[in-house]
Simulated assay, not measured.
Amino acid sequence: MAKRILVVEDNDLNRKLFTDVLRASGMEVEPIADGNAVLGAARSFAPDLVIMDIQLAEVSGIDLILAIKEDASLRAIPILAVTAYAGKGDEDRIRDAGAEGYLAKPVSIGPFMQAVKALLPDSNTDSAAEQ
């Protein structure tokens, strides 16, 4: 069964890139541009992973991470924060909010997919290649 990923990104180009790369890897993707729609989309789509932009137009990605982690039906979903915020202390702040993963933009496809696969539950990420 395909892994389900909710991509929260208000930049059209980044959202399309993430969605295309994930779909090409056989994943089911629900792209969301509007931060206000995230909680409803997460409840209805039931993703295995949320990829969260931090700098959204309508609402802070950090606030959305906190809201997801406070919701009993969503809190177990891992979150990968992808952000242009790469200043001192930003990663700590984002992880303290509840994000299990963090990538600074610009993002390269290899590290992006590595981070995604590392956070997916029951993910068998090339374990034979690591031996």
Rank of each mutant, 00 (worst) to 15 (best):
A97R: 11
A67W: 08
A72I: 00
I65N: 04
A97W: 11
E70W: 06
K69A: 03
R23I: 12
A97P: 13
D90Y: 06
L64M: 02
G87M: 11
I54R: 04
I79V: 15
L22A: 12
K88L: 10
P31W: 09
L56S: 04
D92A: 15
P47T: 01
D92T: 13
D48F: 12
I68S: 03
D96F: 04
P47Y: 03
L22Q: 10
A84D: 07
E30R: 13
A81P: 04
T19S: 15
G61V: 02
L80D: 02
L66H: 01
L39P: 11
Q55M: 14
E70H: 14
I77R: 01
D34T: 12
L80F: 01
D92H: 10
F45D: 08
L22C: 12
D71V: 04
I65F: 05
I51R: 01
A57L: 09
V21L: 15
G61E: 05
S25K: 14
K88A: 15
E100S: 05
P47H: 06
T19H: 11
D96V: 00
D71I: 05
A41D: 07
P47E: 07
S44L: 10
D63A: 11
E70M: 10
A72E: 14
A24K: 11
P47R: 03
R95N: 10
S44V: 12
V59H: 10
A33G: 15
M27K: 12
G35H: 05
A42F: 14
V38L: 01
V50Y: 04
E100C: 01
T83F: 07
F18G: 05
S44D: 12
V38D: 02
G35A: 03
I65T: 14
A76S: 12
R75P: 06
V29Q: 06
R95M: 13
A24E: 08
L49C: 03
V82Q: 04
I62K: 04
L22S: 12
E100M: 05
I32S: 01
R93Q: 14
D96I: 00
V82E: 04
I32V: 15
G61S: 03
A37S: 06
A67F: 09
A81R: 01
S60F: 00
Q55L: 13
A24L: 10
A84N: 06
M52P: 09
Y85I: 00
D53T: 06
A99Q: 08
D92K: 15
A57H: 10
G35T: 01
A76V: 05
G35D: 06
A67P: 07
D20I: 11
L49I: 00
I79N: 01
G87D: 08
R23H: 04
D53G: 08
D34W: 15
P47L: 05
A41W: 03
A46V: 13
L22P: 11
A72K: 09
P78V: 10
I51T: 15
F45N: 09
G98A: 02
A57I: 09
A81E: 04
A97M: 11
M52F: 11
G61H: 05
P78W: 14
D20M: 14
I94G: 03
R23C: 09
R75Y: 15
R95Y: 07
A86M: 05
D48V: 09
I65G: 10
F18K: 06
G101R: 00
L49A: 02
